[in-house]
Structures are given as structure tokens and as C-alpha cells.
Nucleic acid binder design. Structure first.
Lengths: 199, 199
DNA sequence: ACCTGAACACCGTTCAAGT
DNA sequence: ACCTGAACACCGTTCAAGT
């Protein structure tokens, strides 16, 4: 990325590009959306765009970074008012509803595929992932104090496992036509039995 | 796809193309591998290739169909000699080891992304998925008779949930650099607690 | 300093022309 | 009948030329 003199303009341009790109990606998918479309929507030329972002992957990484924490904030709000398992289900439902339009879902899969082969993108996504996990593990530890989660379990393990299951549901909902509710019901059963304190 | 007169030749050509394509996809990923490369490796011209396959997606679907059942057969063999949970872990380990080279893993993500936006591909993959699930659900029912899985659970739900978790692990292992063993250990804990008969 | 847009080096797919 | 390979309609990215 070229050096930029005016930080205000740079931030504004980046924002315009990110908003245009998000719209395009959401409508057409990561691979299907073209840089030309993004440029047109952001009212900028391709040459200028590449002054603000290194590549298409750089744009999707920046969008992911922006979005991080949205589900996290939602979960914290829900958890402050509801049981752990209910807050968990509500947040999973939120994510899966987004995925079930097959657009956000395909984007998630595309990004994962891209990251699997692009170590720089992978590292950036891993950093986001780690932050979300830390935050979620804290809530798990709290739920253990509340007696809602078996204290024998390690909070980080619980956070990791539940997030992995949510990823799996994401793939399934993205690809198939079944409604999120079906799989969410399975998730509740798995989570309840997994988390239940030993009697 | 054009009508083909000689069924033997057609089958041979399809096999040659599929083998070349699998090599290319595995080495370079679905989106990165080019039809030109596949053609070169299969020693066929682009024009001729399109007589045997409708598109790149058609090729990946055919490969997926060929591969289906490999893990299934492996699981049945293992399950005949080991406890349900151990056979399950062994098969999950097999899948994840493949994914952790970041090549098969990225391919899995790419296919999912592609399927999320291509209803024809999605339908073909859903059919494979359904067959694997039926077969797996049978084993779950058997494990319930053996007393290894809580008889309260519905075999199809168990099969579905465990396969969803394995998909989630697949994404994680494909994207991150952590070894499959770490996440497999989490999977064992979740599966044991989920499946355990009520005391 | 910041931008434009033609040009570059590619794609997946098609189709006229060959054998 | 089956094949070739140039051609078509695109990509993401770069860079000389403008303001």
C-alpha cells in the first residue's frame, strides 16, 4: 500500500471502499464480486483503490476485523439477562440466520478457503478468533460460578468447542436449505449435555 | 454435456480427467487450479474436456461423489473392533489429518462456498451427505443397543450433530496451524459428555 | 499527492475447423 | 464421432500519464 499523506482522507476513502465492498461481497460472494464492481460502488478507480488496500483478500480481512465483536457484544448483553445456554442459542441463531441467506454463508466459506491457502490472511483471522475466544471464555468461567456450567470443564476448552460447533453449523446452513431452527435444536441438546454439571 | 457414442471411451476419459483434476485441486485449490492445467495433466484439450464435464463445479462434484463413503467404510471397519467413541475419534482424526495440510482443507471450504451459491452443486452434495448420515445413524442405533450411547437420543440427531462438529473442526484445522490433536481432544470430551447414558 | 483508465497477464468456456 | 486450439468475454492488478 502506498504511503498516504492525509490521514483523514485515507480513513474516509477506506471506509467508502469497505462499505462498497461489503455490499458487493454480500450480494455476490467473495470470488464473484469483482474489483470493478467495488470500484464503481465506491466511486473510485481501480488504481486509486489499490492505494488503500493491497488486494481483494486485504479488503475481506479488514471487513472481518470491523465485524468482529458484534456477536460478542450481543452475547454479553443477552448473557446479562438470560441463562448461559439461552444466550448462547440466541447468538448462534443470530449468526445462522445471517448464513442461511447463502450469501453471508458462502462468504464465510470462501474466506476460510482463502485463509487456508493465504498465511497472512490466516494470521489476521486467527488474531480475531483469539480475541473472541478470550471474551467468550470469560463468560464461561462466570457461568461456572453461577452453576450453569460444569466447573470441571476448562473455560477455554468450552469456548473453543462451542465456537467450533457454531462454525460447523455455519457451513451446513450455508450449503443446505434446511432452516437454522432444525440444527439449532440439535445444538441445544449437545450444549446442554456437554455443559451440564455432574449430578 | 454432448452425447457420447462409445461408453467405454467416455468412462476412460472421465476417469483420466477426474484423476488429473483431483491432483490439480489438491495441489492448488479449487479456484486456483485452472482448466488449462487440468487439461494439460489429463492430456486433453479444453474443448474435448467440456464434452465430458459441464463445468469446473461438475468436476468437483464428481470427485466428491467418488470420495464419498471412504470415511464411512473406514468407520464401519473400526467400529466392528472398537468402542463407538474410539472409532468416531479415529475417523475424525483421519479426516482432520487430511485437512491439516491446508490443501484438502481449503478445497473443502472452497467447495462449501461454491455450493452455497450454486444450487445444483448444493443438491448433489446434499445427496451424498444424506447417504453418509443414514449409514452413520445406523451405527449410532447399534451403539445404543451396545449401551455406549444414551438410548434417549435419536440416532439421526446424533449422526447429524457429530458430523456438524466434524465439519466445524475441518474449517478450524484448515485455517489454523494448530495440530488436529488439540481439537480432537476437545471433540472427545464433547462427544463423551453428549453421548453418555444418563446414570 | 492523489487519481484515472488503458493495458497486462491471466481466467472458464465456446465453437469453427479439423481428422 | 471425437478432437483441437484460437477466440470470447471476462478476471485482479499495475503503471504511465494526468491534475
Amino acid at each position: 500500500m502506498a504511503r498516504l499523506a492525509d490521514p483523514d482522507l485515507a480513513l474516509r476513502r477506506r471506509r467508502e471502499i469497505l462499505e462498497a465492498a461489503e455490499g458487493c461481497f454480500r450480494r455476490r460472494g467473495f470470488h464473484q464480486a469483482t474489483m470493478q464492481e467495488i470500484c464503481a460502488e465506491a466511486r473510485i478507480s481501480p488504481g486509486a483503490l489499490y492505494r488503500y488496500f493491497d488486494s481483494k483478500a486485504d479488503i475481506i480481512a479488514a471487513i472481518s476485523e470491523e465485524k468482529r465483536g458484534e456477536a460478542e457484544v450481543e452475547f454479553r448483553k443477552l448473557y446479562s439477562e438470560h441463562a448461559f445456554i439461552d444466550a448462547l442459542l440466541a447468538v448462534a441463531a443470530r449468526v445462522l440466520r445471517k448464513f442461511s441467506d447463502h450469501q453471508t454463508g458462502s462468504l464465510f466459506c470462501d474466506i476460510a478457503g482463502e485463509a487456508a491457502r493465504d498465511p497472512i490472511l490466516a494470521r489476521r483471522l486467527a488474531a480475531l478468533q483469539a480475541k473472541s475466544m478470550d471474551s467468550f471464555a470469560e463468560a464461561v468461567a462466570d457461568a461456572q460460578v453461577r452453576g450453569e456450567v460444569d466447573p470441571e470443564l476448562l473455560p477455554r476448552d468450552v469456548a473453543y468447542s462451542l465456537m467450533t460447533f457454531i462454525d460447523g453449523m455455519g457451513v451446513r446452513v450455508a450449503v443446505s436449505d434446511e432452516p437454522p431452527e432444525t440444527i439449532l435444536h440439535q445444538f441445544r441438546t449437545v450444549a446442554e449435555r456437554y455443559l451440564a454439571p455432574a449430578k
